[in-house]
């Protein structure tokens, strides 16, 4: 029991430690992303019609978010939301979600 407990204590942080710092929920990008995941699913893996973001190339996500913000061409919630974010914040969000695995 004690060994199992020690193993638990050490194994879990080890698996977190395998991710780059930018991929932590507590990193600046990860912290920002917690507002997105309420709709897009934990770590960007969505269960429904809202698109998944996990594992998509950062450059694609940056381009998509900036298009929503700067050149909206249809009525979607993302046109509205992206107006609240700077280029640096968009880059940090894209870095976080691109580092997430598309499968749990």
């Amino acid at each position: 029991m004690r060994i199992a407990l020690i193993a638990l204590i050490f194994m879990a942080p080890l698996s977190l430690g395998a991710l780059p710092a930018s991929a932590q929920e507590t990193s600046p990008g990860g912290q920002l992303a917690q507002a997105c995941t309420s709709c897009h699913g934990l770590q960007g893996r969505s269960l429904g019609a809202v698109p998944s973001l996990a594992g998509r190339p950062a450059a694609d996500l940056v381009a998509l978010l900036k298009t929503f913000r700067d050149a909206p061409n249809e009525a979607t919630i993302m046109n509205r939301i992206t107006r609240g974010y700077t280029d640096d914040e968009i880059a940090a969000l894209a870095a976080y979600f691109s580092a997430m695995s598309p499968t749990p």
């Binding site: 995941t37 709709c39 699913g41 969505s46 269960l47 429904g48 019609a49 809202v50 009525a75």
Partner: peptide, 20 residues
């Protein structure tokens, strides 16, 4: 079409936030 997609997104939001 917009109202229909908003309804789909609403369901997806609910599914994701309650799963979290």
């Amino acid at each position: 079409e917009v109202h229909q997609s908003e309804a789909k997104y609403a369901h997806s939001w609910y599914e994701n936030i309650t799963a979290e």
